[in-house]
Amino acid sequence: MNRDIAVVAFAQTRHSAQDDGLTEVEMLAPVIGEIKERTGLTRFGFTCSGSCDYLAGTPFSFVSALDAVGAWPPISESHVEMDAAWALYEAWVRLRHGDVDTALVYGFGKGSQGALREIFTQQLDPYYLAPLGVDPVSLAALQARAYLDRAGVKEDDLRAVAARSRAAGRANPYALHLPDPDDEGYEVAPLRPSDIAPVADGAAAIVLAAGDTARELCERPAWISGVDHRAEAHAPGARDLTRSESTRIAARKAGADRVEVAELHARYSHEELILREALGLDESVSVNPSGGPLSADPVMATGLIRIGEAAARIHDGTATRALAHAASGPCLQQNLVCVLSGESDG
């Protein structure tokens, strides 16, 4: 079924670089409260969330998160162990069936309570990669090196991405406010600390609605004109790290063209450059006006926030066509592209 589906509301926490002493549920509950208040909805046709058990090192983190939703009477609900952008994808698919008109999507993560580099080492192939102890930052640096060599880009170009992202983040009340990059040493060469997304705690929620319901709930709905996601092979030696073929395919399927704004889930500065190339974004496109993940990276919500920020540009009238990108896995292994428009096709 083909229906017009839009992002009608977006809420997020003021992301925090340190543990503020709240549980995930306590962090999430005000965001859910805010989005219910903004839409005037207390019940949704479908609910879907994204989170990761390993962030707290206990199973079933999504079970207690349900307490924040008010799941009584019982609700139609699902959960992905992925960034909540994929929860939004699942909800978008569900709304296309035609029998429900609204969906609540949320994601949350407290990156501050564990060692993220060690945790995400355990996401790697358990036979050949994880036993080596190689961490995601080291792998990202490997990708950055390969990209610099292939594209003839300099480390200064990475620094420029970091500086622009941090400057934009300082204008965003929800992001961390980080200083301009200075003469800092390498974290893992060629990446320096400012090239790497800072750890943050945070949560975000989005409400999707279909057709006339969307028009009732929002003055200027951000219509999803296309959304798609694709995966790469896992092993870093089995693919061309310098290109994001899966992003290119997802963008083609989602009809990503003529966008004015792009919010990219680039957790390292070189990833923005690889993604710009895959998405065919030229200098006229405003990339990560929110500051992007380099200014706040509440894992498991970061991708959903990209969609929320892009939609917010439609809601406030600063753009008529925007692109949001979300990523998962090491070295941009999985990529999702969502195209939002101020005008519905139908």
Binding site: G21, E26, A56
Partner: peptide
């Protein structure tokens, strides 16, 4: 994996 968990408010 080591964590520093807080009980919450």
């Amino acid at each position: 994996l080591e964590y520093r968990l807080r009980g919450g408010r």
